[in-house]
Amino acid sequence: MQRVNMIMAESPGLITICLLGYLLSAECTVFLDHENANKILNRPKRYNSGKLEEFVQGNLERECMEEKCSFEEAREVFENTERTTEFWKQYVDGDQCESNPCLNGGSCKDDINSYECWCPFGFEGKNCELDVTCNIKNGRCEQFCKNSADNKVVCSCTEGYRLAENQKSCEPAVPFPCGRVSVSQTSKLTRAETVFPDVDYVNSTEAETILDNITQSTQSFNDFTRVVGGEDAKPGQFPWQVVLNGKVDAFCGGSIVNEKWIVTAAHCVETGVKITVVAGEHNIEETEHTEQKRNVIRIIPHHNYNAAINKYNHDIALLELDEPLVLNSYVTPICIADKEYTNIFLKFGSGYVSGWGRVFHKGRSALVLQYLRVPLVDRATCLRSTKFTIYNNMFCAGFHEGGRDSCQGDSGGPHVTEVEGTSFLTGIISWGEECAMKGKYGIYTKVSRYVNWIKEKTKLT
């Protein structure tokens, strides 16, 4: 034993070699072989497995989906700052455009905790909710729209109204504003409101030439003092309507412009014939205590009207009353817009006519005020429907199939267009061939041609 100890002390290297040989010859039971080890760690190889990531292109799944990435790591994937920024906006807080917040056709661009709407022409605001041009839906104005110097929408209202708090709607500024039905039992019968379409306001006024200088022999019209197929109006439903009495009662109609003036057809009036105007009328054979009678003290036909040349060209006249009318729910003026808007309103496509005229061709006159909704007829169809001249200051309205029309005794009465609950004068009943005849239409004086003249002559002093 002493000898062994001496050998170990003198030859430590020998001992180490012996131990190493023993270990190498022993069977290893701690580690699995290569094949079995792979069965336990069965993990798919990654895209760049075996390579240094710093030297390969980034992978979106590896960089940002398996674990949260930084902007720089995302930049490695896209290799483009702009594309990385677009991805980053949604990656950080989701897609803010998912709810489609942009209105009126706006395009949404996502941002971090926010979004941006790219608005089409005519709109602005956070969600493109603000109209900035009158060309689109009248700028959301209830009545009139004008573009300011910086191309912003400025709404306005006709006389007797003021802008509401929203700067879009119009509200009454006087007790009985024009064009409004205020009798409670008839307010439910107000005709369907007309909503502004998209309009090209630059070209809204037709490029028409008034044929002022045409000389033409007097034409022989049949029954051209021209509501057939209409309905009984309720008291106060058309408070701007008046009836004219002269040699015979209810020979023509008219509309209240203001307390002192009536507008009617020029062919209705004769110099030297006494005319009485009755406002607030409903049943011409009954006294309903809503009527107001006034005498006409002055007749002003349009300066281009000449019955000797043509009885229905420039067929418009103004009547001055001896005493002002007292405005109330049964006696209310009709609204008159400017030339541009009167023309736009007419193009809405349908209007209402009213009167006490004959209820059928050569038949009896109506006792109760009649009204009828009539569609506008395109000019080409209008011209083809008659052998008589249709001037540019006239328009056609009615039904091709016949059966409904204005008729004798309705002449001078109103053709009105309702705009968001307020009625505007767009025409004056003038003439036609018979009444409600198939293929024939009622012919009306186009008020847009005469609004400046009306307003100039009827100013209240």
Rank of each mutant, 00 (worst) to 15 (best):
C28K: 04
Q237F: 09
A397N: 01
N283W: 08
E129M: 04
V195H: 12
Y444N: 02
G403V: 14
M437E: 12
I309F: 10
P175W: 04
Y352V: 07
G50A: 07
W431F: 12
A9E: 11
V326P: 02
Q219S: 05
S25T: 12
Y441D: 00
K293W: 10
G398Y: 04
G413W: 09
N80H: 06
V374R: 04
A337E: 02
T389C: 06
R191N: 13
G179I: 00
F121R: 13
E79P: 06
Y115W: 09
T332M: 06
E27K: 10
S25L: 14
R384K: 15
L130W: 08
D150A: 10
Q90K: 11
G50R: 05
S114Y: 11
L60Y: 04
D410F: 13
V183L: 09
L346G: 03
T381D: 12
S204N: 07
E418Y: 10
R162W: 07
I454E: 00
K234N: 07
Q57I: 01
S255G: 05
K260F: 08
M437P: 07
N48Y: 01
H267E: 02
K234C: 04
V273K: 12
L244H: 03
K293D: 04
F251E: 08
A436W: 07
V263G: 00
G94T: 14
E281W: 12
N245G: 06
S184I: 15
G349M: 04
K362C: 04
C155E: 01
I299R: 06
K126M: 08
T133I: 08
S350P: 10
G105C: 03
V296K: 01
G442Q: 15
D198F: 09
F87C: 00
R180I: 04
M6Q: 09
E82C: 03
F78Q: 04
W431K: 12
S448T: 05
D249G: 12
G246R: 05
W240I: 01
T81W: 08
Q408V: 06
F55K: 09
N48A: 03
N104P: 03
G160N: 08
R449W: 12
R364N: 15
V77Y: 09
R373A: 09
G254R: 01
V183C: 05
N36K: 12
T225K: 11
V153E: 05
L369H: 14
K347P: 01
R449C: 14
G427L: 00
E434Q: 14
T190K: 12
D111I: 11
L60R: 02
F87I: 02
Y441I: 14
A233C: 05
E35V: 10
N48T: 02
R180H: 09
V278G: 04
Q143V: 02
G402F: 15
V243W: 10
Y47C: 04
L325K: 01
P172R: 06
I297L: 09
S107T: 13
R83V: 10
S350M: 09
